[in-house]
Design a protein around this nucleic acid. Sequence first.
DNA 1: ATGTGTGAAATTGTTCACAGCC
DNA 2: GGCTGTGAACAATTTCACACAT
Lengths: 231, 231
Amino acid sequence: MADIPTAAISRLVTYLRILEQLETQDVSRTSSNDLAERAQVSAFQVRKDLAYFGRFGTRGMGYTVPILKRELVRVLGLNRTWSVVIVGMGRLGQAIANYPGASDYRFQYVGLFDVNPQIVGQNIRDLRVQHTEQLGDFVSATPVDMGFLAVPPDRAQDAAQALVDAGVRGILNFAPVVIQPRTTERGGVSEPGDEWRNVTIENVDFLAGMKRLAFYILNPTLKAALTEDTE
Amino acid sequence: MADIPTAAISRLVTYLRILEQLETQDVSRTSSNDLAERAQVSAFQVRKDLAYFGRFGTRGMGYTVPILKRELVRVLGLNRTWSVVIVGMGRLGQAIANYPGASDYRFQYVGLFDVNPQIVGQNIRDLRVQHTEQLGDFVSATPVDMGFLAVPPDRAQDAAQALVDAGVRGILNFAPVVIQPRTTERGGVSEPGDEWRNVTIENVDFLAGMKRLAFYILNPTLKAALTEDTE
DNA sequence: ATGTGTGAAATTGTTCACAGCC
DNA sequence: GGCTGTGAACAATTTCACACAT
């Protein structure tokens, strides 16, 4: 397993979603062409992306839906349980906590945190919202794999630091801010930040999405005219 | 203006956000190095990204925050008013409608739609939620630039088709589905789809984000170790 | 002296053509 | 015959070095 483009991982997630859909429709076989069309990429791309991780098809036949699905689940690490805390239980945090499909694949919310006294103490999905100050103690007692950050932008860096100090290995950042992998000192700036080694950050930023959309509506020529697919 | 990487547009949005933050802190000058550090990219990258659109700095001096900000606002098309409808006013749609910062830059929500009779008729942000069936009539009467899609996955394609039929030029898709730029026939499959010419789709998919995060936590070596920056 | 702007080099990612296997 | 898997060709993007402006 050498050097895999990050875009390939995004596409793998898409292929998996398509396979799940095919499975609910009792479709048992597919092909790189079929997947390509549904994912809006080229069939070359599908085969190359899969080839990074193994040989999952049968030449002349294509792919068996349940097998390829199982293999992608394994590759993406979704056959394992993931313990998740959400920091920031405003409207967005609540929407995330309740979003259907998030509880598939053994993503389990084990702790919910906020600083707003009106929210702390509320019960959401059988969990009592705790004060963010208790994050460190909580994570010491309960292993947590990832934290979702749904706090206002000005709180995001500190909340991220708290998560990383607590030993969380990955952050899904919904705040429109670039998280600095540096030790945040109170009032001050930064330092190399050793606790950030091996911490992964993924951003989900819908404000950025709407601004990109504005740009591409005004400059339609620049958008990789998402029309062509297959071979 | 020739051939600009889509990643460059994402970074431009980030630079703009940083400039706004600097402005609130009354910082009047910055440099490619400073921006690079804050955006977690290389200073080369900052200069190259900006160079796609013009010469905004002064050699030896750097950039003037308000000027560069103004120019990026212009480049991204954010000095113009954008009329937005949201289709799907469940928890996620409501969180989006109420998210602070979305109303900056003249993004204006002009219509909210849902199919759930418990939601239709509610008032959200001074707008009465309408039934999705009324989308076509509404857009005929009120010009709409973009639609946000926050419906369940199985409704996304139809809702996207309705938006495009109504003449909407861009879709911000929150559903975990690949929108097919093809005419969706009732019960049937597809056709080339001419109304999709010049329609831009941006995806904001947090379920995909959490799956990518799972992968990168298990394979930390593959993530472009987001530690190094500048030159 | 300093920091931008940019052509050229290096690297990364995608497309292709076809060998290999059902 | 059909469709996967993959090394090689190609294209896109990023990195770099340095000329140029202040």
